[in-house]
Design a binder for these strands. Structure first.
Lengths: 200, 200
DNA sequence: TGCCGCAGGTGACAGCTGTCATGCGCGAAG
DNA sequence: CTTCGCGCATGACAGCTGTCACCTGCGGCA
């Protein structure tokens, strides 16, 4: 029996996945979580073989969860299931030592098959992503990433300087550098491009 | 037997919903579609009692589908299932004559129940939305809406003037007005707020 | 006819943005 | 020890942004 915890913030999908996998005779759903923290608690309590997790969730993302489990040397394997076809996510997931990375857009039929293959020691990656995994490394520094996130939220430079403790000029320098690296015309386009690549 | 077509662009969720509803003895899934156009074709062919549809899909949204079916005086009832808790969407859905509006974040247990209630002639709306449906009308003019969409994409004022055929000053006037209406500090924040309300 | 409202436009101005040159301190590499 | 790169900063400047006052033409409408 493969014991599985599911972490996904959309109730409907979470329950649907649980039903779907619960129909398999060799899989048992031992926990449901609506965010990373709940998932971590459930994993502590249930010691499952595998956790199926979304990335974008409130209160700890799936990537942070994977990283935490790796640091704790948990025996629970991690399979990421995400909407977002962003190379940066796959890269970070791999660095966090996940065992699988599949897309919500992908074929659903062999979700159970993917779970079984992972338990057999295989590493399962959505084929449409595998090829593009390493084709572009994240060029952003931490400071640039942070400022792009603030720009996305609508702050202007003085507000960002206030929020980060940097000088206004430095804020502009970082943004300038990020704009250059991303080939954008301004901070808004830069933020959009970075977000789309999974670098924010 | 209630005949249902499901329209949802995420394969995983689409198949999971189909499995979930297919388990009910009085519901039969007669079609699956990955976008609004496919859904429309499936409805033509199958003449189902009800279509369960997402809003944000490529190649015709769920709202456009609902509107089309209303104009065609189709007997198929429409139930919207969406991630997005945006009052503007509910308003537009109601104007398109949908029979139900439920959230992916809502309780999944009674999805089948909602389907049955709709078939019994009830109008089913996610309770967390019902109260807020009419509390704020879209204050934006078409010109403002259009410019906010361009702002969101990272264009600056001269580029927007170019794209719309308006004078630069006029572009700034419209944005100024939109910023005022939305209580934002700049065009970026204005675009974010409008998007969040479902007005873009 | 005269007045209003409205879409679209102009001009001015303070402040923000993107770009560039330049500087300083500090830790790593030679 | 010196040099280099890097993080952080400054100053200057053209161009964009947000705000405001005001103008024009046009379709209603009393």
């Amino acid at each position: 029996m493969i014991k599985v915890v599911i972490a996904e913030d959309q109730t409907l999908l979470r329950d649907a996945l649980a039903t779907l996998l619960g129909l398999e005779s060799d899989i048992e759903i031992v926990g449901l979580a609506a965010n990373g923290r709940e998932a971590h608690d459930a994993i502590r309590r249930q010691d499952p073989d595998l956790v199926l997790t979304d990335i974008e969730m409130p209160d700890m993302t799936g990537l942070e969860l994977a990283d935490l489990l790796r640091r704790e040397q948990s025996r629970t394997r991690v399979v990421i299931v995400t909407t977002f076809d962003r190379p940066g996510y796959l890269r970070r997931a791999m660095e966090a030592g996940v065992s699988g990375f599949i897309l919500k857009d992908g074929p659903s039929a062999d979700l159970a098959g993917a779970v079984r293959r992972v338990m057999a020691g295989e590493r399962v990656v959505a084929p449409e992503l595998a090829a593009r995994a390493w084709d572009e490394a994240d060029p952003l520094s931490d400071a640039e990433r942070r400022l792009l996130r603030l720009a996305e939220a609508g702050l202007d430079s003085p507000a960002m300087a206030e929020a980060t403790g940097l000088a206004r000029g430095t804020v502009r320098n970082y943004l300038h550098s990020a704009i250059g690296k991303l080939g954008a015309a301004n901070r808004i386009e830069a933020a959009r491009r970075a977000r789309q690549k999974g670098w924010l």
